[in-house]
Design a protein around this nucleic acid. Structure first.
Lengths: 347, 347
DNA sequence: CGCTAAAATGTAAATGTTTACATTCAAATT
DNA sequence: AATTTGAATGTAAACATTTACATTTTAGCG
């Protein structure tokens, strides 16, 4: 009779910690310790255990571990729309530190559907997730309110926030970023500066619009304020761009957009109307996505430190999970990147 | 003493199936059955159980369920790079049918790092995932080979594939799609048609390049074949575009790109060199991402039914998981969308 | 060498489900 | 009325870990 390399009785049965224990000549407890807290096990046994693990081809059953430890090592990243490229680098940043700490990221695409968001929140109570990073304010407020009540509900926000609910937050100063863009446009000589905002109910857009208004006021341009509303996407940029540029009211000479996609939409609208950018119209975007260097003209835009936002948000959440009392609010700095879509008017 | 609404002894302890059983006056088995197989339980008890569930605020502990059932209801979607917008709609399609069937999707971003891919494959053996949809061929071949050996390893591919390993696959006919693009360019009168390919070792690119060569040959243009290699991104499109357009060899009059991002990169290169598109150069992209309608000029491109690819891939995987013998290969149809970046030469 | 403390290991309970098997009960059949 | 059947329910084992507690071993020290 030949010796089979694997010594399990049942053919095809997945090796468990018991098999390892048997092979290493110790108890399952020791194997478990050798894995979780190697320093509590003698060098000799640790070595034997590791050999045994390799020999039988063991990998721990995570469901059992999760059950026993009452955790899942999974973090949900809740976003409004997975197709928005703005989020991918944030996710990358989150993954970096999450993996480092032995956590997984589950990407939750809400698709603007409240039921989806609710389903993802429910993962917490069923032990399928340990925490949530919330990257959208477009979810049922009830969910958040409830979470906020529990003292240490593992929830942090990144980029977006709620104006009336104070949650741990990693974000840039949207008011200031907006002000910087407007200041810059004014410095180029622009007076009729319009804003193409994201959804009006979105707090970050409200922030940016306050920054816009405040800065216009500071330059005595308040009565030039004009805000159009889009949804961050190409199409709404194009449509609202057309509306802004072909209306009967005196045409704006600059448009500040709350996303790069909308800015590119505005570029298309301007092209279609024979308005040259930047000679007759300046356009500023927001986010500095990859595209902004490759559109025509290259886009002046506000850059957010996306990777860092993701990293810090995850750090913050991990602190929360460890029961620590971290700094609940971090403001990261954005900066204006000047490219070719802005300039002085050339009549 | 006041009655608390929740009748648990331990404060804050999460209610389990036992609490429900107690409240409903039945055994845990019955509660479990009422949830999993309601038809095996009398109407009266089912009602009592549901009331009890609502009353104690029970939701099942999924880790325990997964342990007992030896499944995770989680599917891994493995992709090369999450920031490529091409994938987001495929993911959406996958999620639609996955959620329908009670499965979750875990997005695995490999970032071209073999270790990452391996980690995601390992989820299968640790019971953290039930199956994999593989959207990249850029992973260690050993992993796939090994999976292929096991008769019913729950793995399907979508879009991408391996030339030498026969796995279940949902994809378009890349050879034909490529041929269609080239035929169209030839019909416009182009003779010097270059291809800006994705990575040369990528089977779908090889397929497309075969389609390119075969079609040139069919038109007696074989000696005009010229293939540059990029990596699907904007930057490589721009760089290779410059190289193709400013070289000493006679300049191509059309460039067929393996991605829209690269095509937009080529547009930038052409702009920079003062080559007008489409009058002096035609450009064709691939994938029809959102951007292609908003760049200048709007991009002629090949559209893949991304949502459907995602749905079908998930369907296929679900069949596999149910132990059925599904059709292992499905070819979906792509089509050419003609916009403004292609035309006859105007000298 | 005997004693104590610390380190290493083992035993067994606990985690929350599901499900095979056993039991009960009511209705249907003789 | 006795028997059979099938449905409804209950009992308890099983899933693969972790860990509190108990026990054994080792080292240290006078």
């Amino acid at each position: 009779m030949l010796n089979t390399p694997v010594t399990s009785k049942q053919p095809h049965s997945v090796p468990t910690i018991k098999d390892v224990a048997k092979a290493a000549g110790c108890s399952t407890a020791t194997v478990s310790r050798a894995l979780a807290t190697p320093e509590k096990v003698s060098d000799a046994t640790r070595k034997r255990v590791n050999q045994a693990i390799a020999q039988v081809g063991y990998s721990p059953n995570i469901a059992a571990r999760n059950l026993r430890r009452a955790e899942s090592k999974t973090i949900v990243a809740l976003l409004p729309d997975i197709s928005n490229p703005f989020f991918s680098e944030i996710i990358s940043g989150m993954e970096d530190v999450a993996h480092q700490a032995g956590y997984q990221i589950l990407i939750g695409d809400c698709e603007h559907d409240p039921a989806r968001a609710e389903a993802y929140f429910r993962l917490l109570s069923t032990n399928q997730a340990d925490g949530i990073v919330l990257l959208t304010s477009e979810i049922p407020r009830a969910l958040v309110k409830q979470a906020d009540k529990q003292a240490d509900f593992p929830l942090v926000m990144a980029c977006e926030f709620f104006s009336d609910i104070d949650l741990p937050l990693i974000a840039i100063d949207n008011h200031q970023a907006s002000a910087q863009a407007i200041d810059y446009l004014v410095s180029l000589g622009h007076q009729r500066i319009a804003t193409l905002s994201g959804p009006a109910h979105n707090p970050i857009c409200q922030e940016r619009n306050r920054g816009y208004r405040d800065t216009l006021a500071a330059h005595q341009l308040s009565n030039e304020a004009r805000i159009a509303e889009g949804n961050f996407g190409f199409r709404s940029g194009y449509q609202q761009g057309l509306a802004l540029l072909e209306g009967k009211t005196p045409r704006p000479t600059a448009i500040f957009c709350h996303s790069d996609e909308m800015a590119v939409g505005v570029l298309k609208a301007a092209r279609q109307l024979g308005i040259s950018v930047p000679d007759q119209l300046s356009v500023v975007g927001f986010d500095n996505i990859g595209l902004s260097e490759y559109c025509d003209p290259e886009l002046t835009t506000i850059s957010q430190p996306r990777n860092e936002i993701g990293q810090q948000a995850m750090q913050l959440l991990l602190h929360l999970l460890r029961g620590e009392q971290p700094i609940r609010h971090q403001t990261l700095s954005s900066h204006l990147i000047v490219r070719k879509s802005t300039g002085r008017l050339k009549p």
